[in-house]
Protein backbone atom coordinates (compact mmCIF):
# COMPACT_ATOMS: atom_id res chain seq x y z
CA UNK A 1 0.00 0.00 0.00
CA UNK A 2 1.37 3.37 -1.02
CA UNK A 3 1.78 5.94 1.71
CA UNK A 4 -0.57 8.90 2.02
CA UNK A 5 2.08 11.30 0.82
CA UNK A 6 2.80 9.24 -2.29
CA UNK A 7 -0.89 9.10 -3.15
CA UNK A 8 -1.25 12.82 -2.68
CA UNK A 9 1.64 13.49 -5.02
CA UNK A 10 0.21 11.20 -7.67
CA UNK A 11 -3.18 12.87 -7.54
CA UNK A 12 -1.45 16.21 -7.93
CA UNK A 13 0.53 15.10 -10.96
CA UNK A 14 -2.49 13.52 -12.67
CA UNK A 15 -4.41 16.73 -12.07
CA UNK A 16 -1.65 18.71 -13.75
CA UNK A 17 -1.65 16.36 -16.71
CA UNK A 18 -5.39 16.74 -16.97
CA UNK A 19 -5.03 20.51 -17.06
CA UNK A 20 -2.58 20.23 -19.93
CA UNK A 21 -4.69 17.81 -21.95
CA UNK A 22 -7.77 19.95 -21.39
CA UNK A 23 -5.93 23.04 -22.61
CA UNK A 24 -4.66 21.15 -25.66
CA UNK A 25 -8.16 19.96 -26.42
CA UNK A 26 -9.48 23.51 -26.33
CA UNK A 27 -6.66 24.79 -28.52
CA UNK A 28 -7.29 21.97 -30.99
CA UNK A 29 -11.00 22.77 -31.03
CA UNK A 30 -10.33 26.41 -31.84
CA UNK A 31 -7.80 25.51 -34.53
CA UNK A 32 -10.12 22.87 -35.91
CA UNK A 33 -12.80 25.41 -36.61
CA UNK A 34 -10.34 27.58 -38.51
CA UNK A 35 -8.85 24.64 -40.38
CA UNK A 36 -12.27 23.37 -41.31
CA UNK A 37 -13.28 26.77 -42.65
CA UNK A 38 -10.08 26.96 -44.67
CA UNK A 39 -10.63 23.48 -46.08
CA UNK A 40 -14.19 24.31 -47.05
CA UNK A 41 -13.24 27.67 -48.53
CA UNK A 42 -10.70 26.03 -50.82
CA UNK A 43 -13.19 23.52 -52.19
CA UNK A 44 -14.88 25.69 -54.86
CA UNK A 45 -11.51 26.35 -56.46
CA UNK A 46 -10.36 22.75 -56.61
CA UNK A 47 -13.75 21.52 -57.78
CA UNK A 48 -13.93 24.05 -60.60
CA UNK A 49 -10.37 23.31 -61.60
CA UNK A 50 -11.08 19.58 -61.68
CA UNK A 51 -14.18 20.21 -63.80
CA UNK A 52 -12.25 22.37 -66.26
CA UNK A 53 -9.46 19.83 -66.59
CA UNK A 54 -12.06 17.11 -67.01
CA UNK A 55 -13.52 19.08 -69.92
CA UNK A 56 -10.16 19.66 -71.51
CA UNK A 57 -9.11 16.08 -70.99
CA UNK A 58 -12.30 14.87 -72.64
CA UNK A 59 -11.64 16.99 -75.69
CA UNK A 60 -7.95 16.08 -75.80
CA UNK A 61 -8.23 12.36 -75.14
CA UNK A 62 -8.85 11.54 -78.78
CA UNK A 63 -5.79 13.41 -79.96
CA UNK A 64 -2.46 11.65 -79.57
CA UNK A 65 0.45 13.38 -77.92
CA UNK A 66 -1.33 15.16 -75.09
CA UNK A 67 0.90 16.69 -72.44
CA UNK A 68 2.71 14.10 -70.35
CA UNK A 69 1.36 15.50 -67.12
CA UNK A 70 -2.13 14.64 -68.36
CA UNK A 71 -1.72 11.31 -70.12
CA UNK A 72 1.51 10.07 -68.53
CA UNK A 73 4.78 9.22 -70.22
CA UNK A 74 3.70 5.73 -71.16
CA UNK A 75 5.60 4.00 -68.36
CA UNK A 76 4.76 3.16 -64.78
CA UNK A 77 8.01 1.66 -63.52
CA UNK A 78 8.89 4.25 -60.91
CA UNK A 79 6.22 5.54 -58.61
CA UNK A 80 6.61 8.60 -56.44
CA UNK A 81 4.50 8.53 -53.30
CA UNK A 82 3.91 11.93 -51.78
CA UNK A 83 3.02 11.18 -48.17
CA UNK A 84 1.62 14.07 -46.23
CA UNK A 85 1.37 13.81 -42.44
CA UNK A 86 1.32 16.18 -39.49
CA UNK A 87 4.40 17.71 -37.90
CA UNK A 88 3.22 17.15 -34.37
CA UNK A 89 2.16 14.09 -32.45
CA UNK A 90 -0.40 13.71 -29.68
CA UNK A 91 -3.21 13.38 -32.15
CA UNK A 92 -4.31 9.80 -31.72
CA UNK A 93 -3.92 7.47 -34.67
CA UNK A 94 -3.88 10.26 -37.23
CA UNK A 95 -0.29 9.95 -38.42
CA UNK A 96 -0.17 6.19 -37.98
CA UNK A 97 -3.20 5.76 -40.23
CA UNK A 98 -1.61 7.75 -43.03
CA UNK A 99 1.67 5.87 -42.64
CA UNK A 100 -0.17 2.55 -42.68
CA UNK A 101 -1.93 3.52 -45.91
CA UNK A 102 1.41 4.55 -47.40
CA UNK A 103 2.99 1.24 -46.37
CA UNK A 104 0.14 -0.72 -47.93
CA UNK A 105 0.72 1.21 -51.15
CA UNK A 106 4.47 0.61 -51.02
CA UNK A 107 4.08 -3.11 -50.41
CA UNK A 108 1.50 -3.47 -53.19
CA UNK A 109 3.60 -1.50 -55.66
CA UNK A 110 6.80 -3.34 -54.84
CA UNK A 111 5.05 -6.67 -55.21
CA UNK A 112 4.04 -5.51 -58.69
CA UNK A 113 7.72 -4.95 -59.42
CA UNK A 114 7.69 -1.15 -59.36
CA UNK A 115 10.34 1.07 -57.88
CA UNK A 116 8.94 3.28 -55.15
CA UNK A 117 10.32 6.66 -54.19
CA UNK A 118 9.01 8.69 -51.29
CA UNK A 119 8.41 12.41 -50.92
CA UNK A 120 7.60 13.15 -47.30
CA UNK A 121 5.67 16.16 -46.07
CA UNK A 122 5.49 16.42 -42.29
CA UNK A 123 7.90 15.24 -39.66
CA UNK A 124 5.89 12.48 -38.00
CA UNK A 125 5.40 10.44 -41.13
CA UNK A 126 9.04 10.95 -42.02
CA UNK A 127 10.16 9.59 -38.65
CA UNK A 128 8.00 6.51 -39.00
CA UNK A 129 8.83 5.67 -42.61
CA UNK A 130 12.48 6.59 -42.28
CA UNK A 131 13.09 3.47 -40.21
CA UNK A 132 11.78 1.09 -42.87
CA UNK A 133 12.26 2.89 -46.14
CA UNK A 134 14.91 5.48 -45.30
CA UNK A 135 16.86 4.94 -48.50
CA UNK A 136 13.78 5.47 -50.67
CA UNK A 137 12.99 8.90 -49.28
CA UNK A 138 14.20 11.44 -51.80
CA UNK A 139 12.73 14.56 -50.27
CA UNK A 140 11.49 15.67 -46.87
CA UNK A 141 9.66 18.88 -46.10
CA UNK A 142 8.57 19.99 -42.67
CA UNK A 143 5.88 22.64 -42.38
CA UNK A 144 6.52 23.23 -38.67
CA UNK A 145 7.79 26.73 -39.27
CA UNK A 146 4.72 27.81 -41.25
CA UNK A 147 2.22 29.60 -39.08
CA UNK A 148 -0.64 29.34 -41.53
CA UNK A 149 -1.04 27.24 -44.64
CA UNK A 150 -1.17 29.31 -47.79
CA UNK A 151 -1.21 28.41 -51.45
CA UNK A 152 2.45 29.39 -51.81
CA UNK A 153 3.61 26.38 -49.78
CA UNK A 154 1.71 23.97 -51.98
CA UNK A 155 3.01 25.77 -55.03
CA UNK A 156 6.60 25.25 -53.91
CA UNK A 157 6.00 21.55 -53.36
CA UNK A 158 4.09 21.19 -56.62
CA UNK A 159 6.85 22.87 -58.61
CA UNK A 160 9.41 20.50 -57.14
CA UNK A 161 7.31 17.50 -58.09
CA UNK A 162 6.70 18.80 -61.61
CA UNK A 163 10.42 19.48 -62.07
CA UNK A 164 11.26 15.94 -60.90
CA UNK A 165 8.73 14.50 -63.31
CA UNK A 166 10.17 16.49 -66.17
CA UNK A 167 13.65 15.32 -65.23
CA UNK A 168 12.37 11.74 -65.52
CA UNK A 169 12.82 10.85 -61.84
CA UNK A 170 9.50 9.00 -61.77
CA UNK A 171 6.64 7.97 -64.05
CA UNK A 172 3.60 8.02 -61.80
CA UNK A 173 2.90 10.20 -58.81
CA UNK A 174 0.48 9.39 -56.01
CA UNK A 175 -0.53 11.52 -53.09
CA UNK A 176 -1.29 9.93 -49.72
CA UNK A 177 -3.05 12.05 -47.13
CA UNK A 178 -5.97 12.01 -44.76
CA UNK A 179 -9.36 13.13 -45.92
CA UNK A 180 -11.40 15.03 -43.39
CA UNK A 181 -14.81 13.38 -43.18
CA UNK A 182 -15.90 14.85 -39.88
CA UNK A 183 -14.42 15.57 -36.48
CA UNK A 184 -14.52 11.92 -35.45
CA UNK A 185 -13.59 10.35 -38.77
CA UNK A 186 -10.53 10.90 -40.89
CA UNK A 187 -9.80 8.57 -43.71
CA UNK A 188 -6.37 7.97 -45.18
CA UNK A 189 -6.64 8.05 -48.97
CA UNK A 190 -4.33 7.91 -51.95
CA UNK A 191 -4.92 9.83 -55.14
CA UNK A 192 -3.10 9.80 -58.46
CA UNK A 193 -1.56 13.19 -59.30
CA UNK A 194 0.38 12.27 -62.43
CA UNK A 195 -0.90 11.31 -64.95
CA UNK A 196 -3.79 13.62 -64.17
CA UNK A 197 -6.21 11.69 -66.34
CA UNK A 198 -6.02 8.69 -64.00
CA UNK A 199 -6.94 10.82 -61.05
CA UNK A 200 -10.04 12.11 -62.82
CA UNK A 201 -12.28 9.26 -61.81
CA UNK A 202 -11.35 9.83 -58.17
CA UNK A 203 -12.20 13.50 -58.24
CA UNK A 204 -15.60 14.17 -56.68
CA UNK A 205 -18.38 14.73 -59.19
CA UNK A 206 -18.00 18.16 -60.74
CA UNK A 207 -21.00 20.39 -61.18
CA UNK A 208 -23.44 19.87 -64.00
CA UNK A 209 -21.60 22.41 -66.19
CA UNK A 210 -19.00 19.79 -66.86
CA UNK A 211 -21.55 17.52 -68.47
CA UNK A 212 -23.25 20.34 -70.37
CA UNK A 213 -20.06 21.28 -72.06
CA UNK A 214 -19.01 18.01 -73.54
CA UNK A 215 -19.35 18.65 -77.24
CA UNK A 216 -19.87 22.39 -76.83
CA UNK A 217 -17.58 24.56 -78.88
CA UNK A 218 -15.13 26.18 -76.56
CA UNK A 219 -12.97 29.10 -77.55
CA UNK A 220 -9.49 29.05 -76.08
CA UNK A 221 -7.40 32.09 -75.46
CA UNK A 222 -4.47 31.38 -75.91
CA UNK A 223 -4.71 27.93 -77.53
CA UNK A 224 -5.75 24.70 -75.87
CA UNK A 225 -2.24 23.35 -75.43
CA UNK A 226 -1.03 26.62 -73.93
CA UNK A 227 -3.81 26.60 -71.37
CA UNK A 228 -3.26 22.96 -70.49
CA UNK A 229 0.44 23.61 -70.03
CA UNK A 230 -0.31 26.12 -67.30
CA UNK A 231 -3.37 24.41 -65.94
CA UNK A 232 -1.88 20.99 -65.25
CA UNK A 233 0.94 22.08 -62.93
CA UNK A 234 -1.57 24.30 -61.19
CA UNK A 235 -3.85 21.33 -60.73
CA UNK A 236 -1.04 19.50 -58.95
CA UNK A 237 -0.44 22.50 -56.70
CA UNK A 238 -4.12 22.75 -55.93
CA UNK A 239 -4.47 19.09 -55.10
CA UNK A 240 -1.50 19.31 -52.76
CA UNK A 241 -2.94 22.42 -51.17
CA UNK A 242 -6.27 20.68 -50.67
CA UNK A 243 -4.46 17.71 -49.15
CA UNK A 244 -2.56 19.98 -46.76
CA UNK A 245 -5.75 21.70 -45.66
CA UNK A 246 -7.66 18.45 -45.24
CA UNK A 247 -4.74 17.08 -43.29
CA UNK A 248 -4.66 20.07 -41.01
CA UNK A 249 -8.36 19.83 -40.28
CA UNK A 250 -8.02 16.08 -39.72
CA UNK A 251 -5.04 16.51 -37.43
CA UNK A 252 -6.92 19.00 -35.28
CA UNK A 253 -10.04 16.85 -35.19
CA UNK A 254 -8.03 13.83 -34.24
CA UNK A 255 -6.09 15.76 -31.63
CA UNK A 256 -9.27 17.10 -30.12
CA UNK A 257 -10.73 13.61 -29.80
CA UNK A 258 -7.48 12.19 -28.42
CA UNK A 259 -7.14 14.96 -25.85
CA UNK A 260 -10.78 14.66 -24.87
CA UNK A 261 -10.20 10.98 -24.15
CA UNK A 262 -7.04 11.78 -22.24
CA UNK A 263 -8.83 14.34 -20.10
CA UNK A 264 -11.57 11.85 -19.32
CA UNK A 265 -9.08 9.12 -18.47
CA UNK A 266 -7.23 11.49 -16.18
CA UNK A 267 -10.53 12.28 -14.46
CA UNK A 268 -11.22 8.55 -13.92
CA UNK A 269 -7.74 8.08 -12.55
CA UNK A 270 -8.12 10.98 -10.15
CA UNK A 271 -11.38 9.48 -8.86
CA UNK A 272 -9.74 6.11 -8.28
CA UNK A 273 -6.71 7.60 -6.58
CA UNK A 274 -8.86 9.82 -4.37
CA UNK A 275 -10.83 6.76 -3.28
CA UNK A 276 -7.65 4.88 -2.40
CA UNK A 277 -6.34 7.97 -0.65
CA UNK A 278 -9.44 8.27 1.51
CA UNK A 279 -9.48 4.56 2.30
CA UNK A 280 -5.83 4.61 3.31
CA UNK A 281 -6.40 7.66 5.49
CA UNK A 282 -9.40 6.02 7.12
CA UNK A 283 -7.41 2.83 7.75
CA UNK A 284 -4.64 4.86 9.30
CA UNK A 285 -7.03 6.69 11.62
CA UNK A 286 -8.66 3.42 12.62
CA UNK A 287 -5.37 1.78 13.42
CA UNK A 288 -4.26 4.83 15.41
CA UNK A 289 -7.52 4.71 17.37
CA UNK A 290 -7.04 1.00 18.04
CA UNK A 291 -3.57 1.71 19.32
CA UNK A 292 -4.84 4.43 21.67
CA UNK A 293 -7.75 2.35 22.95
CA UNK A 294 -5.68 -0.77 23.48
CA UNK A 295 -3.05 1.39 25.19
CA UNK A 296 -5.72 2.84 27.52
CA UNK A 297 -7.12 -0.65 28.24
CA UNK A 298 -3.68 -1.93 29.17
CA UNK A 299 -3.45 0.61 32.00
Amino acid sequence: MASLKELKNRIGSVKNTQKITRAMQMVAAAKLRKAQEAAEASRPYSERLAAIIGNLAASMSGAAGGPELLVGNGKSDTVLLVVSTADRGLCGGFNTNIVRKAREEIVALERAGKTVKLFMIGKKGYDQLNRLYGDQIIEFISLKEERTLHAGIAQGIGEKITAMFEAGDFDVCKLVYSEFVNVMTQEAVSKTLIPAIEGMGEVPEGDEDAQDLKGAIYTYEPDEAGILRVLLPRNINTQIFTALLENQAGEMGSKMTAMDNATRNAGDMIDKLTLTFNRTRQAQITSELIEIISGAEAL
Binding site: I52, L213, A216, I217, Y218, T219, Y220, E221, P222, G226, I227, V230
Partner: peptide, 19 residues
Protein backbone atom coordinates in the same frame (compact mmCIF):
# COMPACT_ATOMS: atom_id res chain seq x y z
CA UNK B 1 -7.63 41.25 -68.10
CA UNK B 2 -6.87 38.34 -70.45
CA UNK B 3 -3.36 37.48 -71.58
CA UNK B 4 -4.37 38.37 -75.14
CA UNK B 5 -6.12 41.59 -74.15
CA UNK B 6 -8.95 42.82 -71.98
CA UNK B 7 -12.32 41.25 -72.46
CA UNK B 8 -15.76 42.11 -71.24
CA UNK B 9 -18.10 39.25 -70.45
CA UNK B 10 -21.83 39.86 -70.52
CA UNK B 11 -24.73 37.45 -70.17
CA UNK B 12 -25.04 34.76 -72.88
CA UNK B 13 -21.40 34.91 -73.85
CA UNK B 14 -20.22 31.98 -75.93
CA UNK B 15 -18.14 29.34 -74.09
CA UNK B 16 -14.62 30.59 -73.64
CA UNK B 17 -11.56 29.71 -71.67
CA UNK B 18 -9.02 32.46 -71.24
CA UNK B 19 -5.81 32.83 -69.31
Amino acid sequence: PGTEGNLGVMPNHSPLMAA
